[in-house]
């Protein structure tokens, strides 16, 4: 069940555990994009996501000796999500609004948003959908957001999500369905024109 990539991870982890920073940095380079994306979707702003990612990798290095038998990716993503939960809690305590990062979004940072075949109208629609989903995601509770981000944005299986969030697969199923339903209902009430049901009236 372990892929060649996981076996390679195991080898690098052994080196990193003995204090080899270069080996650990191989793992960083391999997983930093996914870690950053998860943090970005959970926090909703790029600066917070960068801080969370850096903090998570430092924690991972410190706790590497606790990693026994488990695969690196779900273990790392668990540290990332927990770090983001902490940041969100701190923000909630300080009662500050999350940075309005989506407004000044740099289009160049979103390469898949645009392609040569799309008309300007299609590009505009994609932008609107992206903004609507980002808004809706931030309306969810952190727990619901995490499960929907890991499943539908990051493409993890129920079993992997269960490992990352440390909850049973049954809980993943019910939490994911509730998160999707809430997000759907948010879009229905705020952006009804984006959903197919609108065309059927």
């Amino acid at each position: 069940m372990s892929s060649p990539r996981m076996q390679e991870d195991q080898h690098i982890i052994r080196l990193a555990k003995s204090g080899d920073i270069a080996a650990f940095n191989q793992l960083v380079l391999r997983y930093q994009n996914q870690a950053y994306n998860v943090a970005y979707r959970l926090l909703g702003d790029p600066d917070g996501a960068a801080d969370a990612t850096q903090e998570a990798f430092i924690k991972a290095y410190q706790r590497l000796h606790q990693l026994r038998g488990e695969h690196f990716r779900p273990w790392l993503l668990r540290i990332v999500t927990n770090t983001c939960y902490d940041i969100l809690r701190r923000r909630a305590r300080r009662a500050t609004q999350p940075l309005d990062a989506m407004e000044d979004e740099d289009p160049e940072r979103l390469p898949r948003w645009q392609s040569d075949e799309e008309t300007p109208e299609e590009v505009a629609l994609r932008h609107e959908i992206g903004r609507a989903v980002e808004e809706g995601l931030l309306e969810l509770s952190p727990e619901h957001r995490a499960v929907v981000v890991l499943s539908d944005i990051e493409g993890l299986s129920y079993e992997e999500i269960s490992q990352v969030l440390n909850i049973p697969v049954g809980t993943v199923k019910s939490r994911l369905s509730r998160a999707r339903a809430r997000l759907r209902d948010y879009l229905r009430s705020h952006y009804p024109e984006l959903l197919p049901a609108a065309y059927r009236q």
Binding site: I21, F24, N25, V28, L29, Q32, N33, A35, Y36, N37, Y40, R41, P46, A50, T53, Q54, F57, I58, Y61, R109, L110, P111, R112, W113, R126, I129, G130, A132, V133, E134, V148, D152, I153, G155, R180, A181, L183, R184, L187, R188, L194, L195, P196, A197
Partner: peptide, 30 residues
């Protein structure tokens, strides 16, 4: 069903963002 399926599709099409920098640890961090 159709609205939930569309919601999932929207999520799956969300763009990936590139990491703004490398998060490799330095000797100083260590």
């Amino acid at each position: 069903y159709e609205d939930m399926q569309a919601t999932v599709l929207f999520l799956q099409q969300m763009p990936r963002v590139a990491a703004p920098r490398a998060f490799t640890l330095t000797e100083a961090d260590v």
